[in-house]
Amino acid sequence: MRLNRVCKRWGRGPLVLRDVDLTLDPADLVVVLGGNGSGKTTLLRVLAGLASPTSGTVTGRPAHVALAPERFPEGVRASTRDYLRHLAAVRGVRSDPSPLLERLAFTGEVDAPIARLSKGNAQKVALVQALQAPPGLLVLDEPWSGLDVSASAVLGGLLGEARAAGATVVVTDHGGDALALPGVRRVQLGRGAAASGVEIELARAAAHLDALAAAEGVREAGPRGDVVRLVVDASASDDVLARALRLGCSVVAVRGGRP
C-alpha cells in the first residue's frame, strides 16, 4: 500500500497533513508519532479509507481493513457478544471471540450492554473486534490507552501474530509501548508542515541560514535556541546534509523521514 504526496484539510481549515509519502508492506509495524494536532488521527482515517485525501493518492489498500478508534463511545446498547458477532458477520467470518477476550483478560459480562463495561474492558472489546478476523491492514489509534500492564503485553503479542499472518499494522501510541516492539518503523508527523519530512538540527549554522534555506528540498529553516532547525523533504535530506557539512556546519540531530 502506498501514500503518495497525501495532503488533507478538513473543510476550509488548515492543512493537517502535508505531502505524506508512505509505503506499507505486509507484516510492517508502523508507529505514527507526533504531538497533539500533528495529524496522527487524520492519517489513520485516510489509511483506513474513512477519509479521502484532499490531494495526493492512496493506492493498494488491502481489501480487509480493521480499525480500533482511540475512544470507544459510551452508551453503546449492544452487548459484547452481539456486537462482536455482528461485526464478524459483516466481515464475512464466523469467529468465537472468547479466546481473544480471555487472553486480554476481559472481565466484563459478555451479555451485558457494552455501556456497562469499565473503560478498560470496553477498550478490549474495541481491540477484539479489530483482531478477531485477520485483516490486511490493522489501524489502531492509541490501542494501549486504558489497558492494564498484563493486557498491554498481550496486545504486543497479538500484533505480532497479526503481522505473522501478513497484516500491516499501523498504530499511534503516546505511551511508548509500541516502540518497544520488534521491527517497529517510526513515522514522524510534524506540526502539519513537517509531515514525513526530515528534521535536521545544525550547530555553527546561523551565518549560513539563507544559503541553507535556499537549498533544494528545504521546507523550513530557522533558529531554535542556539541551533538552526531545518525541515527538508526526505528525498533531499542527504544532499542538504552534505551541503551543510561543506558550509562548515555541525550536525546535531537528524530525526524522522521516510522510514
Binding site: A48, G49, L50, L67, P73, L87, A126, A130, V139
Partner: peptide, 16 residues
C-alpha cells in the same frame, strides 16, 4: 449508530 461505532462499521464493511 454512534458516530464512532459508525467509523468501525464503515471500515469493517469496506467503505462509506
Amino acid at each position: 449508530e454512534d458516530p464512532v461505532l459508525r467509523t468501525i462499521t464503515v471500515v469493517t464493511a469496506g467503505g462509506w
